[in-house]
């Protein structure tokens, strides 16, 4: 017990220190880089970010309302290949796919009636034959902005 206790404490400290580092790193990335993509729209203040590796996906669910004009920005850090994102409705129709628009990071839209939308983010694998050890990871941030009317 005496032998394992320091190891457990250090493991917990390690995990805590690493997660804080990673979180702060992504917040800084979102603030410094992704927020600029939102301009001239006003960032709504919500912040969603995760560390993703090549081949991994994230999803975001959001309700959008009439009388607002929205901009969604999806940004990946330099270590990652360009990030793919799709906007899908409740009927599973793809409303926007950035693969069909030169992998742009933003999409501007408005809705005529309130809608729940799903945003699927995918970090494509650069080379499927690569060994696991060579797979890149980095921050991916998803931010929304709207216009002040």
């Amino acid at each position: 017990m005496k032998r394992t206790l320091p190891v457990i404490i250090l493991a917990v400290l390690f995990s805590f220190a690493t997660s804080i580092k990673v979180s702060s790193q992504c917040k800084g990335f979102a603030k410094q880089f992704c927020k600029l993509e939102i301009l001239p729209y006003i960032h709504d203040g919500n912040y969603h970010a995760a560390i993703l590796s090549e081949g991994e996906e994230a999803e975001l669910y959001k309700t959008c309302f009439p009388d607002q004009e929205y901009r969604i920005a999806v940004c990946g850090s330099e270590a990652l290949p360009p990030v793919e994102f799709k906007v899908i409705d409740a009927d599973r129709n793809v409303l926007f796919d950035n693969k069909e628009h030169n992998m742009v990071k933003t999409w501007d839209f408005k809705v005529e009636s309130a809608k729940q939308l799903k945003i699927v983010i995918n970090v494509p694998a650069k080379d499927k034959k690569k060994a696991d050890a060579e797979i890149s990871s980095g921050c991916v941030a998803i931010m929304f902005g709207f216009k002040d009317k």
């Binding site: 919500n46 999803e59 669910y61």
Partner: peptide
């Protein structure tokens, strides 16, 4: 329905209207 598909995502986010968006909806 919007949530129905089986997800392979590593991370799932649910985004609520922020204070600013709620206020903007009221104003508009």
């Amino acid at each position: 329905d919007i949530f129905a598909d089986i997800s392979h995502a590593k991370q799932i986010f649910y985004s609520l209207p922020s204070p600013l968006e709620s206020a903007m909806m009221i104003k508009s």
